[in-house]
Write a protein that binds this DNA or RNA. Structure first.
Lengths: 223, 223, 223, 223
DNA sequence: AATGAATGAGCCTTCATTCAT
DNA sequence: GATGAATGAAGGCTCATTCAT
């Protein structure tokens, strides 16, 4: 059944399968054969619809982030006028959600973390855009929370503290590759909630402490 | 020079080269050819000395962690009687150092993060031991810092917050694959110091906040 | 523009495009995709209209030679009563023209040379006819020029001398793949003229010399 | 038998097989599989010994021309002081020999003609050297024969007349792909001799006629 | 009548491993 | 003990062809 449909369908099945496989195994370990196997189509279909494995990967990225942006909008969908603490909560919720979500949405976080650990050079353009947007938004937020005296370096370190907590924790909890002595028993939604609350609480305190440090340095140097 | 010395030498050169390559490219992207190329020996040497790529990888893990334990002992080499805050600082210093160190030492952290993101199933045994030891030590420390009322889950989340901050930040800063708009200009030692101080300050505050939360929950539930 | 006119149009566009591509790249290097691309139609059209790449190639041959025969009639259109020297000039002009002509006409010579160098087995029938006709006409002409005593072998050799001079020179000058140090700067018409005159002059002398040889052999053997 | 020999042997068998196959089918139609089949070795051997199909092809060229130069030295091995007529005969003998020789030697001519008709861009360097050397030697010789008044263009045309006669005739007679009504019954040596004599006689006369033309033009323009 | 979609066979290449010395 | 040579399995890609509409 479902042969020679309208062409969009097969293309879509491939894209879906590719999202899963790339997220699960990374660019190199993912094989066109497995992707097409899951999409129930021929190996040549990848080249027919996307031109190459590389270009398929780029499309996967685009789609993963588009979907993630819809399901978990940056800063939780709050406007720029919302209080920064709320926007931090929203941001953390967004990043955690993208990493933990068991469906298609969850691929975005995994793809991103993979590229951070072992970049492929295959998608520089796409990746650069996605990362830069996120980075800029977070930096702005951090600067609000840290106060006007924070240096670029301090802003960066704090940003990294928050982002990497979210991504790494989220993914490890979800991939089920935590060491066997670590288990969570709850629904995905609850998990997202729990992680978001923990990281928000933890990070807000961390940010405050950093801010105090900054202000003390300020006093010292002006004394 | 020094032709085929004593057989241990070759084996050792391979191990050294393999550490670099595996840390840099990950298990699958690393090729036996490149490893032997850097070790200035024949491709067959890997199988001769180690039996297979898998077994070489396992040896690499063992050696990387042995060396890392020596150079950056867990908890900074402090005894169990040292105050927990100091031991936290020591632990963070240790993890960051293992990730950032540019020489052989740095491989341990990178290998570990890689396995977290994309596990290989090749070294379950070795990995399990290394991770379990670290995990247990940190959990104990966290429980001290969080107080006796902390649940296992809370201990785990806090542990993860600290560990992943260290590893992910460290590695990303070191691999030089940060987005181009992010740059640090300092020596490795300074970098380790800066990161350690930031993460320690950030985390101590985060832990305190978590502890307060726990105590408040305690009050509520006993009310 | 002009959507799917009448079906013959598409078939015709394919044929035209195929002539170009086959002449330019040879049977194997020519791809159905490029042909259909130039013909602004679908890949499936080739098989639909011609059955297969092979059969398309055969049609291309037929058409190329029909057109070439019209534009450059054998022996320059002279009747059998014209003096043989004039008919030789006509023949050379015809072969050179077929090879050098930049438009559709030029394909015939290129296709022919290609088949001589790397036969395809795809079009034995078609090719055989085209070649045999040309060969017979030239052999007759050569025999006239060489005299009645010429052996078959001598006739053949002289024929080959003339034919291959025309084809190979013409094509190499036109394909632009001459070594970079060789350049001609003139219009196609002038080029055809120049080549024809050179080859005619060169060949007439060659033929005369061969004839003299033959007559001397004759004398010797009858002595 | 003959497994795991000394490595040179297999490499050599591949090279030999590749010469045949490339000469017979051309670069694109030749498959690594067939080459290795004839060389009685594994497909991977090509990459092991030569790196790629391209590089193998380049080696084939080099070897074919080296061997050809030895077996049929340019200008027949005559020094620059020999009379130009003798050197022309030597040159023709050399080119014909390279084309007709049934053994390994014959590949050089076929490879060359193939590249003239459908260049590959794979071996620009190698090819350029081989062709340029031959071209320069012949041009010099032609200029001697045509006299000092000959223009570059006239020299070129005459060169092409001679070269292409040799190559195209030789190859077509040898490949056995002449139309079925054309047959020569003689040994290779005799064939080379027959062709050489015919082409030399034919060309010397052609050259003389061209020279006379040149001198007449000279007179006219100076009148 | 015509075409977008899909496919399978075949090609070149890579790579961990094994063989023979 | 060590290595150069060799291999088979697998991967990505191309391309003529076929299917279903």
């Amino acid at each position: 059944m479902a042969r020679r449909k309208d062409g969009i369908e097969t293309r879509d099945r491939i894209l879906t399968a590719a999202c899963e496989v790339f997220a699960q195994k990374g660019y190199h370990d993912a094989t066109v054969e497995e992707i097409c196997g899951r999409a129930k189509t021929n190996i040549a279909a990848v080249n027919y619809h996307f031109g190459s494995k590389d270009q398929l990967y780029a499309q996967v990225w685009r789609r993963a982030f588009d979907e993630a942006n819809e399901a978990y909008p940056p800063e939780g969908g709050l406007g720029p006028d919302a209080p920064p603490e709320a926007r931090l909560h929203g941001t953390i919720h967004s990043i955690v959600g993208r990493a933990v979500d068991p469906g298609r949405i969850g691929h975005a976080g995994k793809l991103l973390l993979r590229e951070m650990v072992s970049p492929t050079d295959v998608i520089d353009q796409v990746k650069h855009e996605a990362v830069r947007a996120m980075h800029e938004r977070m930096s702005r937020l951090m600067r609000e929370l840290l106060g006007p005296e924070a240096t670029d370096q301090q802003v960066l370190l704090t940003t990294l503290s928050v982002v990497h907590q979210c991504m790494a924790i989220g993914i490890r909890l979800f991939t089920g590759r935590m060491p066997p002595f670590v288990k969570f028993d709850m629904s995905t939604e609850q998990l997202v909630e729990t992680l978001t609350n923990h990281i928000t609480c933890f990070s807000l305190a961390g940010i405050s402490a950093t801010r105090e440090n900054i202000e003390m340095e300020q006093l010292e140097s002006s004394a």
